[in-house]
């Protein structure tokens, strides 16, 4: 579903991704963990072509992206992305946030887009909020709307970049519950998170990244019980206190 082949990415002289190889299979949930600054966000952004890379190749749902590719919108239509800071459109109501891209990009009728949007809002438990503006929502509600907005494009893959890191602790659960639901429905997902409990429960595979390299990958039970890599051990001992 996602094939990442030898990706290199630099910001100026700073090489942030140093040859990443990773395959994500259909319906697989891959959780990416690692210290801050290790390149996790950059990797996700490359998969969605929000970030240009210098070497290597990424294939998503049969669409290949290389450093020279131009047709990136086709790829982005198939890949949904959820950001740490939600990035809802503040000048549009919740339902208009969700229907904007389906109407403009997929050329759905307003009616069709709205009935799908309402179904998605029900799925994330926010049907009654459809006509309010994002500013009146709590963080957890905003993130659930952002998930619904991404799902409205009917993506084949969903990327999550620390979706709960900007939330008050009591709101983390509601967002993770939506994500878990999505995983159980068979969505292919790549998730960057610091929620180790969630990773353990929902991930099919855990990737540990540091300094732009995948240092270790394994099924969650093995990874969390018996990490091999020294840096992974140090990282886990810090976050699993």
């Amino acid at each position: 579903m996602i094939k990442i082949k030898n990706i290199h990415k630099k910001f100026g002289k700073n090489e942030v991704l140093k040859g990443i190889n990773l395959h994500v299979h259909p319906q697989e949930v891959v959780v990416v963990i690692g210290p801050s600054g290790s390149g996790k966000s950059t990797l996700l952004r490359c998969v969605n072509a929000l970030e240009h890379f210098h070497q290597g190749e990424i294939e998503v749902c049969g669409i290949t992206v290389s450093p020279k590719s131009k047709e990136l919108n086709e790829l982005r239509k198939k890949v949904g992305m959820v950001f740490q800071h939600f990035h809802l459109f503040p000048h549009r109501t919740v339902i208009d946030n969700i229907t904007l891209a389906p109407i403009q990009v997929l050329k759905q009728s307003k009616k069709e887009a709205e009935s799908k949007a309402i179904a998605l809002l029900e799925k994330v438990g926010l049907a009654e909020k459809k006509d309010v503006y994002p500013s009146s929502l709590s963080g957890g509600q905003k993130q659930r709307v952002a998930i619904a907005r991404a799902l409205a494009m009917e993506p084949k893959v969903m990327l999550f970049d620390e979706p709960t890191s900007a939330l008050d602790p009591e709101m983390v659960g509601e967002v993770l519950a939506v994500m878990k639901n999505l995983a159980e429905e068979g969505m292919t997902m790549m998730i960057v998170t610091h929620e180790m409990g969630f990773a353990r429960e929902v991930a099919d595979r855990v990737i540990f990244m540091d300094e732009g390299i995948i240092m270790e990958e394994n099924v969650p039970n093995v990874f969390f019980e018996h990490p091999q890599n020294e840096r992974a051990k140090a990282f886990l001992s810090k976050v699993l206190l």
Binding site: R76, H85, H87, F89, P90, L100, A101, Q104, A150, M153
Partner: peptide, 27 residues
């Protein structure tokens, strides 16, 4: 306007002109 707005629009498959017209300019 926060770059995140453009990125969110682009990640939904909008092209640069659509992102400008529907997301950035109105704000």
């Amino acid at each position: 306007i926060d770059r995140g707005q453009t990125e969110a629009a682009r990640s939904l498959g909008m092209n640069q002109i659509q992102a400008m017209r529907f997301v950035v300019l109105p704000q």
